[in-house]
Nucleic acid binder design. Structure first.
Lengths: 322, 322
DNA sequence: TTGTAAGCGTTATCAA
DNA sequence: TTGATAACGCTTACAA
């Protein structure tokens, strides 16, 4: 009987409750989630849309999202975009058909319209890590990327570097442009040369991802330090640097976004910008869970967490001369 | 109208089909998945149960499973066990309530009964990477772990090592015991000393994961080579080895299971056993999709794929003397 | 306190 | 070829 499962939904005699409970046990009865959803017009599943869980960054994020969701009794439907706009909108379509209660997404950036539709149709949306414009109802949970870009660059400047390059993700993506903005601001604040040729935009899916390294090394006046703010390509960049026999930090100081396993294990250890992955995921899920119970919000909320620069051995004073 | 969506389900005039299609467009109609499921008693979602997608191994697996599932128009509900038996059975419970069409799982090994119930209730089950006993109806997709353990050990023997240690995952898990069995067989085939003190069983969740390293190093007659068949702890082991100033391969030759990013990037590169992650995922999903359309099988099928030893710089001839 | 019936959005059956 | 109707398994409102 329904009243014993959803306690509080009506009166039920203690004795009959036990009788019902007994039958449930003996018959191995389990409520049919789809039927319940159909009747109550509510779901206990949310969607998670990220680029690629093979990438440790999103893997960690997804792991924590799943864990946090469980605490709210929410299932997580995982969809990946592989940074492809078509896969992204297909993913959204599937989630809408399944009538998820909300979506946590790291958008590719090329689908504002699709995301806008999501909120227009009354499905709650929380962007994590990245954002897109023109989706006012979406909540945003992420770090202050501009500050992080600034911190990474400033850290290198403090060590005496004057020519600092950055390998960014696509500037069309919020994290890309924000981090580069922070980088630029740091360069300008210190009165350094703001040289556009030191800014490399590497596509997330660039098979070699390292073309940028070659172009950088080919510069007539190559940099003495590098910020890799493109998390997805960072390992490829490091690999290419190794192939090209660039030694770190002697030839090049290095700061990388995201504290991946390889960064801590490399010799020397790589100085990184560390994101509070657990907190990002927890806040995103909490926010979504809150939205799913409360009434529809006026505008989305922006939750900015702080990243941290973890200093290891990949940054040193630049060699003199050259 | 239903007949135009599910084409072939009934006759429909070409003209009315167009009219219906037009309304669908204009009203932004999307079929309600839950209602359809309720009626047809079928689902378009499968469950994926792995330990932990923050781990690159399962991250890669999950990524490919999601991609392959999409090709079959299947959604993936992701649940993680964190290697915890309780979380595992909770996960299964949720998946059963949601009436998924099937489950792909890397079981913790401590829940045979739960998995048995899954198949008993008519839900298709494909084990990936690992297995548990007593679930005859489950399909299994994985590599030949015993052969892999043998190959890793034999590779070290061929390089002249006589004392070879192994840090395994829990022996209660199929991969753990199989890999150790392969290791043992290689040791015995070559007439080497089969010393139990060289076999270390490190729990997947061991916070330091490196206690085994310390114990190994404390041996009066320490090994000259090490196989780390515990993928989840391999990075921690490498980190501890570094802290203890063990240089590779001079002091210790190393072979690790799973070709993680850090293994390729380390200097020297780490020799690894590489699993065909993509193929494992693809076969698992294909198998599940096949089961979901066909009739219930007699017994599960076992699909054994082959792993590959990728030689890099972490294996050398042992130093003389000692 | 308990039983009954309607209805959620589909698909399938049966008449028209 | 099409329209009406029952049923999937649940929740909920209302009657007993």
């Amino acid at each position: 009987m329904s009243r014993v499962l959803n306690e509080g939904s009506g009166p039920v005699a203690p004795e009959t409750r036990l009788r019902v409970l007994a039958s449930i046990k003996s018959l191995h009865y389990r409520p049919h989630a789809a039927a319940r959803e159909l009747k109550t017009q509510s779901t206990s599943t949310i969607g998670l849309v990220v680029a690629d869980v093979a990438n440790e960054f999103f893997g960690q994020l997804a792991d924590r999202v799943v864990r946090a969701a469980r605490a709210h009794d929410l299932g997580v439907l995982l969809l990946t975009t592989q940074e492809d706009a078509v896969l992204e909108s297909d993913s959204v379509k599937m989630l809408m058909d399944k009538r998820v209660g909300g979506i946590i997404a790291a958008p590719t950036g090329r689908n504002s319209g699709v995301w806008r539709q999501v909120t227009d149709m009354g499905v709650h949306l929380v962007f994590v890590d990245r954002t897109v414009t023109r989706v006012p109802a979406a909540d945003i949970v992420g770090v202050d990327n501009q500050a992080a870009g600034y911190a990474a660059t400033d850290h290198l400047i403090e060590h005496g570097h004057r020519r600092i390059a950055i390998i960014s993700g696509p500037l069309a993506i919020s994290t890309g442009s924000e981090r580069v903005a922070g980088y630029r601001r740091a360069i300008q604040d210190q009165g350094l040369d703001d040289d556009d040729r030191l800014i490399f935009e590497a596509d997330f899916r660039d098979p070699r991802g390292s073309a940028a390294v070659d172009r950088m090394l080919a510069l007539e006046d190559p940099p003495t330090a590098l910020v890799v703010s493109n998390t997805a390509r960072a390992a490829a960049v490091a690999a290419r640097l190794g192939e090209r026999d660039v030694s770190i930090p002697e030839d090049l100081s290095l700061v990388v976004f995201h504290d991946a396993t390889w960064a801590a294990l490399a010799k020397p250890g790589i100085t990184v910008i560390r994101h509070p992955m657990g907190e990002i995921a927890d806040r995103a899920v909490d926010q979504l869970a809150k939205r799913m119970t409360e009434d529809w919000p006026e505008r989305g909320e922006v939750i900015r967490l702080t990243s941290e620069l973890v200093s290891r051995g990949s940054v040193a004073t630049p060699k003199r001369g050259r």
